[in-house]
Design a protein around this nucleic acid. Structure first.
Lengths: 361, 361
DNA sequence: AACCCCTACGACAACGTTGTCAAGGTCTCA
DNA sequence: TGAGACCTTGACAACGTTGTCGTAGGGGTT
């Protein structure tokens, strides 16, 4: 695995001192087309042709140029290329997500990056922390860097900066949530259908009183997931009981409080549907602490590491952030001329907690 | 454990709804210095001065230029700037990690990105999947893009591409593991000390036979962590018993096998030290499955989400990837002229599994 | 009034590349 | 043998910016 490659570049001065000062550029200018041309004895334009694989260079000259370029370690200057290219493409992609450290967005970024890499595209990544000013500034920074496309999970409300970027020719793809009045590609999880499927799963196991704990309705995905909950109840003819619904907060402590409150009702729910991973984890832990983990059914939206190690395993509606990322990158780098909304399906993963039957059964 | 995966909407697949035509660039060239100059009635050089805050422009002209720039929505072209600048800085940073989707590296990237953002630096991120060819190609791609610095978790063995990049003036910072014969900044977790601390913690609770399950010694961090285990035993005068040591594989199944094998020994260990999060999770689950989670002590290297929700909670030696990222970015963007090795300490987090005493006590 | 200096601005080259066009050579075919 | 076509190569402009230098004009000092 560790390749035994002898660095044959000592002659070129690429040796590294073992300890001491940081290798400051010792006058080692990066070689340019002209340097290669001088060494090969041709004009720099001919080198350009060889490097870009343009036709019309004789085999002999091509070989000589190749050799010179290799010897000097020539790499084209991306800035100059981007500046001069007729189509203005830079071979870069900007990605702007809530938090690249969050598992969901990290997996999404990973998906984007895979596709980009296979296209030879470099990916700028940045987090917004849902701060609108930050989102706008980073969008502009990426536009200034002439990214070929921008993939972003937009904040609610103001999409003017995206509209402007789009009007200046930057291709835009939205992920995780849509934007109103913006005719661009969107890649979304099917939140509503997934949520509905999860609640139907609980109904199938006999539950009629199903508690809902989700995030604030100001969040798009939270609205969709709650809508799926309502749809499932309606379809089964179960009346919506708002005393079973909690839609605020997403911290661990608030979620735990919601679970406690629901279970303390005079007529408590026999099952819970939770609208986000953090809430699901907390709900599972709270049920365990109360010794009810085998009595109250639980299905959560979002899969999470270790969901299968808890006892019982936690049944979830899993999103596929990796697929969302791949799809978004394909749309961003593709040549389609019409904007589309791409919906990525969810997957129900049964692990035990969601298959606990209604107690009367 | 085997999750029952029911595709919830097999019939749906990925649906796309066409919405309309993509906003193609309607001849909207991005405005340049010249456009702003024409509108303000000055030379383009004067606009350049205003935009860059250079002195020597009268207040009246400055105001007129500012107005024109705002009206046109002028953004400087980053490629042209990078091309022309004397210092050759592009305001970009390349990051090359094993997998940006992995929680450890995602947090590390997040730390880098925070610091970079505060400096107005854009971050290229890419995964290598520990593929050397991929690492070398991406390094070259970033060098071609003239990144000001490159932060990377290098593969073992061949560092010629990094040496070359450094010699051409790209600042290099290594994270998570060092490189031999390369005089550059390094930011590392104190693997050895952390591991030693964890094993000492078990020894403090009376354990003498402590099993070790870690990754292959070809991996730097695995070697260091094992060295810490050995150090702790030596310091306590406990002889090293290689029958208690398993150092291969990192998949869930192989880790489970190792736990089973250790516990089946004639004289089984009373405690386990695991050298990686995946192994720790699997060990915890395996102990639970055997009903031994309250009998065999467990300390793992690497914290993981939900370690506190298992019963008992899993005691870990936590790394701080976020801090590693921040420190690496500070070194990469800083002005220090001498290379240094920066060690980030670990933290012991007691949650229960590591505080199970030796049975005879 | 002659001198100088300072301020505010502009003209122009240069960065490293790609696009355009023309020059010179070879080949084909009449 | 000449004309035309093609192939190979080079000269040069241009991309949008920053760095260098020049210059016009105002104000101060002798």
């Amino acid at each position: 695995m560790a390749s035994n490659q002898t660095p044959s570049m000592a002659s070129r001065g690429v040796t590294s001192t073992v300890m001491g000062t940081l290798s400051a550029p010792p006058g080692t200018r990066r070689p340019t087309l002209r340097d290669v041309a001088a060494r090969a004895g041709v004009s720099f334009k001919t080198v350009s042709r060889v490097v870009n694989g343009e036709p019309g260079v004789s085999p002999g000259v091509t070989a000589r140029v190749r050799e010179a370029a290799d010897a000097l370690g020539y790499r084209p200057n991306a800035a100059a290329t981007a500046l001069r290219r007729a189509d203005g493409r830079t071979g870069t992609l900007g990605v702007l997500l809530d938090d690249v450290g969050n598992p969901f967005f990290a997996a999404l970024l990973r998906g984007i990056e895979e596709v980009a890499r296979s296209h030879g595209i470099a990916v700028f990544a940045s987090s917004t922390d849902l701060n609108f000013g930050c989102e706008r500034d980073m969008t502009r920074a990426y536009v200034a860097r002439q990214v070929d496309a921008l993939i972003t999970a937009p904040a609610e409300g103001d999409f003017a900066h995206l509209a402007q970027a789009a009007s200046e020719g930057t291709r835009i793809v939205l992920v995780d949530r849509p934007a109103t009045r913006l005719d661009v590609d969107v890649v979304l999880t099917d939140n509503r259908a997934g949520s509905r499927r999860g609640v139907e799963h609980l109904i199938t196991h006999g539950h009629l009183r199903i508690g809902y704990i989700g995030r604030d309705p100001s969040i798009y995905t939270a609205r969709e997931r709650f809508a799926g909950y309502v749809e499932a109840l309606n379809a089964a003819g179960i009346p919506l009981d708002m005393t079973l619904v909690r839609r605020e907060g997403a911290t661990r402590s608030s979620a735990a409080d919601h679970v406690e409150a629901l279970l303390s009702l005079a007529e408590p729910p026999t099952a819970l549907f939770t609208g986000q991973d953090l809430i699901t984890m907390t709900a599972a832990a709270t049920l365990q602490r109360k010794g009810l983990q085998y009595d109250v059914a639980l299905v959560g939206f979002d899969d999470f590491e270790l969901a299968d190690l808890l006892q019982p395993g936690v049944t979830v509606i899993a999103q596929d952030p990796h697929a969302i990322g791949r799809l978004a990158a394909e749309r961003a780098l593709g040549r389609e001329s019409t904007a589309a909304t791409n919906v990525v399906p969810t997957r129900l993963i049964e692990r035990g907690s969601g298959e606990i039957p209604h107690p009367s059964r």
